[in-house]
Amino acid sequence: MDKITQPTIVKITKIINEGLNYKTFVFNYPLEARAGQYLMLWLPGEDLKPFAVAWKTPDKFALAVLKRGDFTAKLFEAHVGDLLGFTGPHGTYYNLTGRKKILLIGGGSGAPSVTFLAQEAGQQNIKVDFVLAAAAKEEIIFESWLTAQGVKVYHRFQDKKYEHAWDLITDLINKNNYDGLFACGPELLLKKIVDLSLEKNIFCQVSLERYIKCGIGVCGKCCVDNSGLCLCQAGPVVNNHLANQISEFGKYHRDGSGQKIYFKQ
């Protein structure tokens, strides 16, 4: 049995403050990963949680982390030189095959999943527009980094006419002939994007967040209704048709005990 899942230990080489409650942790390690995939990050002796890869170079990779709970609070206390572990990359990734002009949407803790995709698309000379969905201006991250990748960045704080990110997104989709939509962020926003993509028949992939605890398809915490598929392996990136078949999509997810938590409309 040659399949061994134990953390690989890496040293934090750089920590970047991205803004309100957001930090990027950079590691010197030649990671083989595709945009959309995630690592299970181990704080030795503490816990292990999933994070999408935010960007990578041939010899470095980065995780961008939004402070949102006990684990991330502990992670925010880490220093350059500290040792962390990871397993993975795990899960599915975005597929850019055949795309020429795409819209990426990233919001909250989901933004880093699509920043990596912007980097991949840039390397393939695909034209990229990027909507940063955020509740407050202080939560806008990676704007200059994205611009440096040749990406055109939009957010609703640039133009007062948009009250919600969704208004900006629909406006962009209506005005441009995108041949691909890729998004990671709040699930109710993802649901709207998936519905619109199906209506307009645009290729679309979204990354869904479920309670991932083992990451290897065994513990069953991330199984979705009604298929029972484990999203730690069948996801996190799913296309719009598969998302639409997940009966709980846009309705509820489950906590660590398996109890349903309904999304607030």
């Binding site: 061994i4 503490e46 660590g256």
Partner: peptide, 20 residues
Amino acid sequence: EPRSGHKAPIIITYEAGMLN
């Protein structure tokens, strides 16, 4: 009662099998 279980990692594998 509901239980959220142990902190992760909850499952690791090695040359000869699995620990959970």
